[in-house]
Design a protein around this nucleic acid. Structure first.
Length: 859
RNA sequence: GCCGAAGUGGCGGAAUUGGCAGACGCGCUAGAUUCAGGUUCUAGUGGGUGAAAGCCUGUGGGGGUUCGAGUCCCCCCUUCGGCACCA
């Protein structure tokens, strides 16, 4: 009885070999580099299947390129500041640091158990002073450059997390992390000036062919560039002017009123005394409603201020309204209203019986403002626009801006939706913002030589009120670095997205202690050649990291414009949910015979959704590894779907992968007698192969080619694995035949088996090492070059042509490769089946695509 | 509403450039092995029809281009994702 495939002992053994030999330490050799990086995890306690998938993908790439001779950097670390640690501290009375480090230890054990090829010597954890010291250092540099600043403004406040959130961290009015409805608060906060890079961030999205188009589109939409004009409208009878931004200067003659956002600073000054009370009442009401604003669209409402302003082109007076649909955060918080050509203004005008003035007509038509049922927003011919009448509106745009610039009433302008990044967080477990407030000197940066500003350990955490650090007197009280007087430290910490915005740079020289990273190391390793992670960071981490890369470049710290050359966004890991009409989501063990074990009601099944604890459809990687091994777990997560698509978890599918590895195991171990006394077939010395052996040799090289291309060009690991499976199936057919009795047969067999083991190694490294060793190879797989493709093995002398008649497959014919049309025609005409189909018919057309197909049109 | 992606067997998915649709795996069926179950091995498996060879049909729906369309073009439907009063 042959030895069974024992995944546990094989995996444990090779993991210790890799660790003891430091198999994956990055080499100092300056040969062609490849930097492969997966998004580092938050140490929540355990890895989940999403991590398993993400890191399995990265590991295939890393191991493949190592075997291809590249100098590979493949690091791992921990995004280890953040709220869950603090919440755990409050709930379970354990210090965030202890909780975090214990989680890191456990997750590191899990990652090692998966056999990933990380260079653990480069591990970083953002919560360690050695790391966040450089966060603070970079913050001070940005402060010097004017790219960090403090301002009071209305900000997003999450009551659940008891902290402020950046715009990017609010999704549909809710917190990205805890789903609480976000409130608006007026607070003084630190901001990073990402808007200074708006244009470059946008521009480079058109120069990043290695990124998925949809991520680039999401970033472009988020940056939200609009080209148009700024126009000043003087307030009648006052020195005040209202500045507006418009993308439609061509409609300027159609302005019939003005809309201001609630909270626009000019409102108190211009509101007529008799309207004041009503305006205030409306403002209060609109403010209350905007807080509760949900998915439902609010009704457009407004109130007249009693003031008028003057159209700079016509001199006409139009009424000024406060309107609930105008946003203070975008543009100037004031909008020139052109009801004829803007749907929102149209609705408002109809509701408040304001005039509609048509200034653009559709080609060949004249619009009647009384009859119109919606705004006309398309292109057309200018009307009611003084000197511009008759022009195409697109042409009038430039002409009108020119006129505005001449008269000084306005100018060309570009507006972005992107806001500056608010990074102050009123929480404990984060990087302290290195700033000191002195009554005499004002805001003073902490001196560089005092970095890091250490996060104090003994702080009371309640989850309530503002900034926990404010209660740590020893931390707060400090001498002013400038005047030496009594001063206070900033008590907010940084958004943890700051930590992750440059960690990929730290990996290039993680132990450097004079700078965040070594410039020459960054020059060699950057940019990251392949970055892999979830799509959920499309406009969060991925935008911040791009911004930091550019800002740090401009600080002279490195020379890359963009951090990630190629980006792969992997799909989610999903699984069927089970739902009882009475008891909600159920675990699989709570269902018996499709019925709920609590109430006996029929269980709904079939819907496949993203794995989540709340839906009770998660699978614990530890259990799967325990039962099937890391290799099987990796294989399944790579085989079940291409990486960018969602993956449906199925226990049967996992068993299929396990079965396949068992098949490979037996293929080698049960044929060791035939395999050991021989060398792999070598065409130059072993003579020609024939028949099934020739086919095997060819299939071996076809498989090498396919697997290489699928990994290198497309990351389609599922098809790579399936082609290895096909080769294994062929070898099973052969092993029971007579071919293994000949010397040359054994050589061809060995060539194929070696290829299987090596091609499999990036996917299932442990079993590959074990089998490789058992095949008598001295060097481990990780030091063995990738199989060499012999193009000559792929050459064929004959090909089978498909014969189609009127587009339908009717027969086949075998002809020499690259046969001339005449010869093919002759061969086709000799084919019996073809003759039956064309008997008595005229051949109207004969299409021949060499080595592929013949199509005859007959009638 | 706007932007984007995707619709292929019972299921996950192949088909890289327009050229045999359904590779590979799961599931299912049958046979062999086994005391038996499991394991393993072999064969079959889109639908219709037929004893079989075969024939017809088939990639969300409708039209088109082409000798030839899952693939290219036009219209429509469905699902998923992102943004959503952005002036």
């Amino acid at each position: 009885m042959a030895e069974k495939y024992d995944h546990s002992s094989i995996e444990a053994r090779w993991q210790s070999v890799w660790e003891n030999k430091k198999a994956f330490s990055t080499s100092g050799d300056r040969k062609e580099k490849y930097y492969v990086l997966e998004m580092f995890p938050y140490p929540s306690g355990k890895i989940h299947m999403g991590h398993v998938r993400n890191y399995s993908i990265g590991d295939v790439v890393a191991r493949f390129l190592m075997m291809r001779g590249r100098n590979v950097l493949h690091p791992m670390g921990w995004d280890s500041f953040g709220l869950p640690a603090e919440n755990a501290a409050i709930q379970h009375n354990i210090h965030p640091a202890k909780w975090t480090y214990e989680n890191i230890e456990n997750m590191k054990r899990q990652l090692k158990r998966m056999g990933f090829s990380y260079d653990w010597d480069r591990e970083v954890a953002t919560c360690k002073p050695e790391y966040y010291r450089w966060n603070q250092w970079l913050f001070l540099k940005l402060l010097e450059k004017g790219l960090a600043y403090k301002k009071r403004s209305s900000v997003n406040w999450c009551p659940g997390c008891a902290t402020v959130l950046a715009n990017e961290q609010v999704e549909e009015g809710r917190c990205w992390r805890c789903d609480s409805t976000v409130e608006i608060k007026d607070l003084e906060q630190w901001f990073l000036k990402i808007t200074a890079y708006a244009e470059e961030l946008l521009d480079h999205t058109y120069k990043m062919p290695g990124w998925p188009e949809r991520v680039l589109i999401m970033q472009r939409n988020w940056i939200g560039k609009s080209v148009g004009a700024e126009v000043n409208f003087k307030v009648d009878g006052s020195d005040d002017a209202i500045k507006i931004f418009t993308t439609r200067p061509d409609t300027l003659y159609g302005v019939t009123f003005m809309s201001l956002a609630v909270g626009h600073p000019v409102i108190p000054a211009i509101t007529a005394p008799e309207r004041r009370e009503e305006v205030e009442r409306f403002t209060a009401k609109a403010r209350a409603e905007s807080k509760a604003r949900g998915v439902e669209e609010i009704v457009k409402e407004g109130v007249f201020t009693g003031a008028y302003c003057v159209n700079p082109l016509t001199g006409g007076k139009v009424p000024v309204y406060v309107a609930n649909f105008v946003l203070m955060e975008y543009g100037t918080g004031a909008v020139m209203a052109v009801p004829a050509h803007d749907q929102r203004d149209f609705e408002f005008a109809r509701a408040y019986k304001l005039p509609v003035r048509v200034v653009i007509n559709p080609p060949g038509k004249t619009l009647d403002p009384v009859e119109m049922e919606e705004a006309y927003v398309d292109e057309g011919i200018m009307a009611n626009s003084g000197p511009f009448d008759g022009l195409q509106n697109t042409a009038a745009m430039d002409a009108i801006i020119d006129l505005l610039e001449e008269t000084g009433a306005g100018k060309r302008s570009i507006n972005y939706k992107l806001r500056d990044w608010g990074i102050s967080r009123q929480r404990y477990w984060g990087c302290p913002i290195p700033v000191i407030y002195c009554d005499k000197c004002g805001t003073v940066p902490a001196p560089y030589e005092e970095l890091p500003v250490i996060l104090p350990e003994n702080v009371k955490l309640t989850g309530k009120g503002l900034s926990p650090l404010a209660g740590a007197e020893d931390f707060v009280t400090v001498d002013c670095p400038r005047c030496g007087g009594k001063a206070r430290r900033e008590t907010d910490t940084m958004d943890t997205f700051v930590d992750s915005s440059w960690y990929f740079l730290r990996y290039v020289s993680p132990k450097e202690d004079r700078l965040p990273f070594k410039k020459d190391e960054a020059a060699y390793w950057m940019p990251v050649d392949q970055y892999i992670g979830g799509i959920e960071h499309a406009v969060l981490h991925l935008l911040y990291a791009r911004f930091f890369t550019k800002a740090l470049r401009d600080l002279g710290l490195h020379g890359s414009d963009e951090p990630f050359k190629n980006l792969l966004t992997q799909g989610m890991v999903c699984k069927e949910i089970l739902k009882c009409p009475e008891h909600g989501y159920l675990y699989p063990e709570e269902v018996k015979d499709n019925k709920c074990v609590f109430c006996g009601k029929a269980v709904e099944a079939g819907a496949v959704e993203k794995m989540s604890k709340s839906k009770k459809n998660v699978v614990d990687p530890d259990k799967i590894i325990e039962r099937y091994g890391a290799d099987t777990t990796r294989m399944f997560s790579l085989f079940a779907a291409p990486p960018e698509k969602d993956l449906d978890w199925s226990e049967e599918g996992v068993e299929g992968s396990y079965r396949f590895l068992g098949r490979v195991w037996r293929l080698v171990t049960e044929n060791l007698d035939a395999l050991m006394g021989t060398q792999a077939y070598d065409a130059s010395s072993d003579g020609a192969l024939e028949g099934a052996l020739k086919d095997l040799h060819q299939q071996t090289h076809r498989t090498i080619k396919k697997v290489t291309q699928d990994i290198e060009e497309r990351f389609h690991f599922n098809t790579a694995i399936s082609s290895i499976m096909e080769l294994v199936n062929t070898l099973y057919q052969l092993q029971s035949g007579s071919d293994l009795k000949t010397d040359i047969g054994r050589k061809a067999f060995r060539e194929a088996v070696e290829a299987v083991v090596l091609l499999l190694s990036p996917f299932a490294p442990h079993i590959s090492e074990e089998l490789w060793e058992r095949l008598g190879n001295a060097a481990p797989v990780y030091e063995t070059p990738w199989p060499y493709l012999r193009e000559d093995a792929l050459a064929r002398e004959e090909v089978t042509l498909i014969i189609q008649i009127n587009g339908k497959v009717r027969s086949k014919v075998t002809v020499p490769v690259d046969a001339p049309e005449e010869a093919v025609r002759e061969a086709v005409m000799k084919d019996d089946k073809t003759n039956e189909w064309i008997k008595g018919k005229e051949i109207k057309k004969f299409v021949y695509v060499p080595n592929k197909i013949v199509n005859m049109v007959v009638a």
